[in-house]
């Protein structure tokens, strides 16, 4: 997302070929909308100008039917405030109801290990502390047990909020694999992207290879027991519709956001 700008455009030849000119403008990828106007100008155009307003204006001026172009207004790109960003995610809007009672923090089985309790996380979001929230370990030690959600008297969807914050942290590159939980999550999603299903042996192998291969030693007894009880198939299964999974992911990435 870049700067937005509004242009006013005059046509040559007193407005002949108005419909063609309209179509010509609408076909430009930078153009968000075109409004035909009457009076001194023929069109008002809103453009998205990621590489600069001048470049887009020049591109329009190159068209042989354009006589004159004036810049009406330039809107600088202002990043969304953190609270607004959180509220725009499904379930994120529920933090507006938070009364800071602390029931979530009191209910959380893992609160002792968190940098900030769930109640504090909500307070920090409201205070706009994006980096402080997104670099904290709070989301990484949430086990998604939903006890906070079940007990919240204001129906704030706290567990969903934790997932959403984790996604935002990944999107902003604010942890990008700095906590073991994020690395595990990534290995998990890679398994789905590749096979359509999760292969538990492969998942654990990738996780320990990327974090601490020696930690796997502590687990070797667990692995052996699972294996000897027929609970760890070594081969990964691939679904037939893996192309559908790929098409879904490509399209979701093209549309972006949640």
């Amino acid at each position: 997302m870049g700067v937005k700008a509004y242009f006013m455009i005059n046509m040559k030849g007193g407005g002949n070929g108005h419909a063609d000119a309209l179509a010509d403008l609408e076909a430009m990828p930078e153009v968000e909308f075109v409004a035909p106007v009457s009076g001194q100008y023929d069109f008002m155009v809103k453009v998205d100008a990621p590489t600069g307003v001048v470049q887009v204006a020049n591109k329009i001026l190159e068209k042989e039917w354009v006589k004159h172009l004036d810049v009406l207004k330039i809107e600088p790109h202002i990043p969304k405030p953190f609270l607004e960003e959180v509220c725009s995610i499904p379930s994120g809007e529920s933090i507006n109801w938070c009364a800071q009672c602390g029931m979530c923090s009191a209910s959380c089985p893992n609160v002792a290990q968190m940098d900030y309790s769930p109640r504090k996380i909500i307070a920090l979001i409201r205070a706009g502390k994006r980096e402080q929230v997104l670099t904290s370990n709070t989301m990484s030690v949430c086990a998604s047990c939903y006890l906070c959600t079940a007990r919240c008297p204001e129906e704030v969807k706290i567990t969903e909020l934790m997932h959403a914050l984790e996604c935002l942290a990944v999107r902003h590159g604010l942890r990008g694999g700095r906590t073991p939980t994020t690395i595990m999550h990534r290995a998990f999603t890679e398994s789905i992207k590749k096979n359509g299903r999760v292969h538990e042996v492969g998942l654990m192998f990738r996780f320990y290879l990327r974090t601490n291969p020696f930690a796997a030693l502590r687990l070797s007894t667990v692995g052996l027991k699972l294996f000897s009880h027929g609970r760890m198939p070594l081969r990964a299964r691939k679904i037939k519709g893996i192309e559908q999974i790929k098409a879904i992911i490509d399209k979701a990435q093209a549309l972006g956001g949640a």
Binding site: I89, P90, M139, S144, M162, H163, A164, E166, C167, V170, T182, M184, H185, R186, F188, T189, S191, I192, G196, R197, V198, I239, G241, I245, I248, I249, A252, Q253, L255, G256, G257, A258
Partner: peptide, 16 residues
């Protein structure tokens, strides 16, 4: 059927 995605996927890329 494919993997439901579970918590790890919804904590990485929610729309996907």
């Amino acid at each position: 059927w494919n993997c439901c995605g579970s918590t790890p996927y919804s904590s990485t890329e929610d729309l996907e």
